[in-house]
Design a protein around this nucleic acid. Structure first.
Length: 281
DNA sequence: CATTCGCATCGTCAGATACC
DNA sequence: GGTATCTGACGATGCGAATG
């Protein structure tokens, strides 16, 4: 029943990257066979159009599915990064801030001054590297942060962290022991430095709220807000696509189940026909 | 080897929807 | 009603296979 209702909701004039429209139609056809098209004519055209125009989110749809149908996995709220923590970072401090660099690396700054850096290409925070800052502390009041990194003129990577400091990736693995704990293997090493130059293009240091005065600061604030919005939307788009994939998978499995069910019913019907009208010859 | 094609993925925008 | 979130649409990019 739920499926029939959702099929009404799913019809959408234009499908996106994953054209699940055919699949949904297929499910609808099978479901109608399965449930004898009982709602046919029940919904008047106006109401139907209203329903068609509103498409609930994949999370909502799948969660409803999962509550109705045992075995259908639920889409978790924030599932990707928090849970499924790989064993190699199990002993690390819980990050309080996670930033992403322009190269796709993730930097997690934990309480106690631990910086965790994950390489791009790995899902979530796999491959995190722990770096302990000995000179880390609470950021000065009013100074907030920064989720950006840049390629410095000397080819090193710089990450900006709370406290107006810069995490600089060494070109050679040459560690500054007073600053960082030892990184193992061929992991890149990093140093905490005071920023030597003005912030690179694209890096915005946010001021504390209420301290914005000049048009330049207002513009910076606007830029920061935009970057934040874009970052959030980027993540939202990723999450949405993940949910859509899951949703399509769910539809596919539903199709498979209904096809088997349909086949069985047809066979049963044939058997009953044979029993009820035996051949005379 | 260069080009083309199809496909997957991503980032962004804009509009719809959900939430407070 | 304002803000946050979700998602369709679009364009860009990268990759592998097919083709000339």
């Amino acid at each position: 029943m739920w499926w029939h209702q959702h099929n009404l909701c799913f019809r959408h004039p234009i499908e996106e990257d994953y054209s699940s429209g055919d699949l949904e139609e297929k499910v609808a056809t099978i479901a109608e066979t399965d449930e004898s098209a009982e709602s046919e004519g029940v919904i008047d055209s106006h109401k139907r159009r209203e329903i068609l125009s509103r498409r609930p989110s994949y999370r909502k749809i799948l969660n409803e599915i999962s509550s109705d149908v045992p075995g259908v996995p639920k889409i978790e709220e924030e599932k990707s990064e928090e849970e499924g923590t790989p064993p190699n970072i199990a002993t690390m401090a819980v990050p309080t801030s996670i930033y992403q660099t322009s190269t796709g690396q993730y930097i997690a700054i934990a309480q106690g001054g631990t910086i965790q850096i994950s390489n791009p290409g790995s899902d979530g925070v796999q491959g995190l590297q722990a770096l302990t800052m000995t000179n880390s502390g609470a950021p000065p009041p009013g100074a907030t942060i920064v989720q950006y990194a840049t390629q410095a003129a000397d080819g090193t990577q710089q990450f900006f962290v709370p406290g107006s400091q810069v995490v600089v990736q060494d070109e050679e693995t040459e560690l500054a022991p007073s600053h960082m704990a030892a990184a193992t293997g061929d992991m890149p090493t990093y140093q905490i430095r005071a920023p030597t130059t003005a912030l690179p293009q694209g890096v915005v240091m946010a001021a504390s709220p209420g301290s914005l005065h000049s048009p330049q600061q207002l513009a910076e604030e606007a830029t920061r807000k935009r970057e934040l919005r874009l970052m959030k939307n980027r993540e939202a788009a990723k999450e949405c696509r993940r949910r859509k994939k899951e949703y399509v998978k769910c539809l596919e499995s539903r199709v498979a189940v209904l096809e088997v069910q349909n086949k069985k019913l047809i066979e049963e019907l044939e058997t009953l026909k044979d029993i009820c009208s035996p051949k005379t010859d």
